[in-house]
Write a protein that binds this DNA or RNA. Sequence first.
DNA 1: GTGAAAGCGCTAACAC
DNA 2: GTGTTAGCGCTTTCAC
Lengths: 359, 359
Amino acid sequence: MSKKLTIHDIARELNLTSGTVSRALNDHPRISTKTKSLVKQKALELNYHRNKIASSLRSGKSHTIGVIIPSAEMNFFGSVVHGIEMIASNNGYSILLYQTEENTLLEKKAIETFLIARVDGILTSVAKETVDFSHYQELQKRHIPLVFFDRTNDEMKVPSVVVDDCKGAFMATEHLIKNGYKRIAHVLGPQNIKGFQDRFNGYRDALKKNNIATDDKLIYQGNISIEAGKAAVDYFFGLDEIPDAVFAVEDYTALGVIKGLKERKIKIPDEFGVIGFANENFGEHITPSLSSVDQQTVEMGKAAMGLLMDIIAKNEGNNEIVLREKIVLEPLFYFRESSKGKKPTEKSQHDKLLIAELS
Amino acid sequence: MSKKLTIHDIARELNLTSGTVSRALNDHPRISTKTKSLVKQKALELNYHRNKIASSLRSGKSHTIGVIIPSAEMNFFGSVVHGIEMIASNNGYSILLYQTEENTLLEKKAIETFLIARVDGILTSVAKETVDFSHYQELQKRHIPLVFFDRTNDEMKVPSVVVDDCKGAFMATEHLIKNGYKRIAHVLGPQNIKGFQDRFNGYRDALKKNNIATDDKLIYQGNISIEAGKAAVDYFFGLDEIPDAVFAVEDYTALGVIKGLKERKIKIPDEFGVIGFANENFGEHITPSLSSVDQQTVEMGKAAMGLLMDIIAKNEGNNEIVLREKIVLEPLFYFRESSKGKKPTEKSQHDKLLIAELS
DNA sequence: GTGAAAGCGCTAACAC
DNA sequence: GTGTTAGCGCTTTCAC
């Protein structure tokens, strides 16, 4: 191993002191341009790399951000991390990644690890299991900048970035209405998750706005899984009045619905409309392709990291920055085959003709 | 901000010196159990978190690993990172994540960043674009432990973890043969990528072993994309002798093949068999579901991180460890609808009966 | 089993 | 515009 190179080595070679070298490398304003270029030149020549550890210890800033996600294996979070890392690295920050596997204990360990690593801020998507938020409160007590994304907690006053689930659900439901479906059901997600509540709200809002009575029988308590979607179909087809469309809380649920309908030889979208949520990448490739609501994952990551950068800048005294408490991203609706509209029955065909004649 | 807590504070409260406190916290063998528990107790009480930055500076080890991937948005890499992080965190290491977007310049920046952060090792999947490996050679010169995963370079002597592409391709191709397909085509991936060459080799090996003559006309130079798959179908159906099955270099290519075949109303798998590679998550949900070769992504991450841990341990003097130069993971074949076998034509039916009579 | 003291490599306050 | 100097908070060698 070539002996470790420090600013002292550069200083010696140039007959300067380490202080000057440090300032030159950091573009300190009071250092002459000549010295700066001399120092930088020499650093390059010797293949010097500054020691971030020493500099962090002295300056008190690690230029590192901790990111907590349930699992990198989940598409959604991989995509968010993609956005986060882009912005981080554009701003000279590195990101430390930690997975919780939806486990509160690992979440606490993540925070512990980040506290020890002296990260300058933390981005987190709360584990499903978490009900005790003391570890996050600890961060607030220590004034460590914190931003929630996707999975938030409204009781804690923490800035957050989410997609407008309510609006997305509203768009999806109204789309089904406009495409002629009459009895629109909903497969619920677990209601302890705020986003899933919102999707339910959006669904109801759309019905209300279009003067369609809500019917509790059309609400099935499901989950994010293919099985839940299939089970929902079994339930719906046991009703006296069978629905003719479903807005499912998530794409996997919607996929289950489609599979269930196919088993019953129900034609999609001619007899039955289906819409999901999340815009998982299988949606556009299945038959029929699945209409869905995109959650703007990469944008979410960018926005979360941007917000964190703002908080850090403000803490450092940049008072021009106006912080936003909550960034709500617009969902994007992807209109595909599964909700294309009902084939007009003879009766409705007849109605249409009538209407045409009357007008 | 509560004033920063250091080992000196703990030392003062217990009438000890900071040296003893440090040793106690690190379970130094020569410290009495009583002192240890006293110190740990106090640390907990004061809510002390050791400063990793200071400890890294002093000890020269950061307990941090740099991970370079093309993009966290790609399923494959998210999944590998999942495996990497699991093992890292089990071993008390943190991971710094950097994305290259397949760009050599960003790859060099990643290495620069990691050098500055004084990571204890680096895991990397080389960007597609990269042909100049000087930045990696620099790491070797500095004796920084390095492991390649998936995207490797055989000219540089760097330990690596890959899946056996050749074997996977062999399995896939032989499966098509066993299922009665007679003219089996292949859609190539870019041949500058070693894994894609290997898949081609596996394809040829399987034909050879089964005494089937290879035919250059059945090889289409494609890519990893739906479009390439569709174009391949156009090409194959322009041949005098049309193939009856395709082994595609990747699932998206296979998806394109399926789409192309559907447009031509060719029945899969009855008239035409299709197999992909990668086991992307849409494969099991499309119609027909796509047979594919799984690349053991999570295992790959675990193996890569495990190998890196071994290298580090060996460097630290643990001589019992025998390092492996290359870990080759077994691919896993997923047999689904798209390759279920041809519907016997009248003629082949006749042949079968004949054979049955003869035996 | 514990104390004393040096120093990892850098930054920044204070000189001039 | 540059030098001097004092740490940041920890680990570790050398004492005893």
